[in-house]
Design a protein around this nucleic acid. Sequence first.
DNA 1: TCCTTACTGCAAATCATTTGCAATAGTATA
DNA 2: TATACTATTGCAAATGATTTGCAGTAAGGA
Lengths: 152, 152
Amino acid sequence: MICSKEDPNLTEKVTQRLQGQKGRMTGQRRLILETLESLPGHPTAEDIFLRVREVAPHLNLSTVYRMLRWLQKEGLITVRVFSENERQDRFDPNLTTEHFHFVCQRCKQIIEFDEPSPASAIIADFEKNNSARVENVGLVLHGLCRDCLSQE
Amino acid sequence: MICSKEDPNLTEKVTQRLQGQKGRMTGQRRLILETLESLPGHPTAEDIFLRVREVAPHLNLSTVYRMLRWLQKEGLITVRVFSENERQDRFDPNLTTEHFHFVCQRCKQIIEFDEPSPASAIIADFEKNNSARVENVGLVLHGLCRDCLSQE
DNA sequence: TCCTTACTGCAAATCATTTGCAATAGTATA
DNA sequence: TATACTATTGCAAATGATTTGCAGTAAGGA
């Protein structure tokens, strides 16, 4: 099952957060946020930068990074590394509930899915056996997607 | 459950592979392999480099990287990125059967564990729903380990 | 409208990793 | 055992992603 982004308003959420902490909602930030929401999947900082540049040619890559790190710190996005040999961070707006990822080794497409029950079984077992607390779960499958499989 | 390394002889395996492909078993390679086996957990290239340097002060970091990438290509080790904000690759000798990882967010210790059945349920479900083939699974839990939890 | 200071663009720094190249050293062969 | 071939190494420089210092710019409250 491929999840879609449901929450329409990251910008609004951010505006609220900024109020509380001497922050300012600038044009650059608004643009970055809108771009992050509009891009499908899990864009890299560069993906966002290139898109934003079409509209605002002066906006700098470091501004993009600064915003993304702030969002990360605020818990509004999640940073993911999907595979060794892919060195750019990918930024995942937390717009859907918890989900996991499948990365096709050939065409590199990322498919989101969720498997709540077996995953919670893993977590519960681990917590019980280790007296630990699990705060979050990163589950990434690698393999061949339907299309690449059929071209084998 | 914390798994330990059971297979005693990575060096021997590598020597065999090298025969088949015009490769040479050099002193540097032997050292790197022994170090990789002797270091606990999932060392970074730098961890290995620093340890090797104690014995062979001229051995270069790029030699370490070259060997690690070769091992990766040969499927003898696995490269992992355990968390965003930890930029160094970590190298995991494939000495035990498939296992997963828990990273403590406070003390950074990595606990290995396996959960064969719920994990295979996830894989089987995904393959069925997507007509895909899963080749490998990366499962990383983040949270607080027993010790850090008790110091809360 | 003015002031304060958060935010930005830019260039330079950083950090992990990779690469080009000339020198070195395994190993197969004579 | 010496020789030749070429894989491997050390070194230094390149790369690529991300971060940072700083001086100028611009939110947004007074």
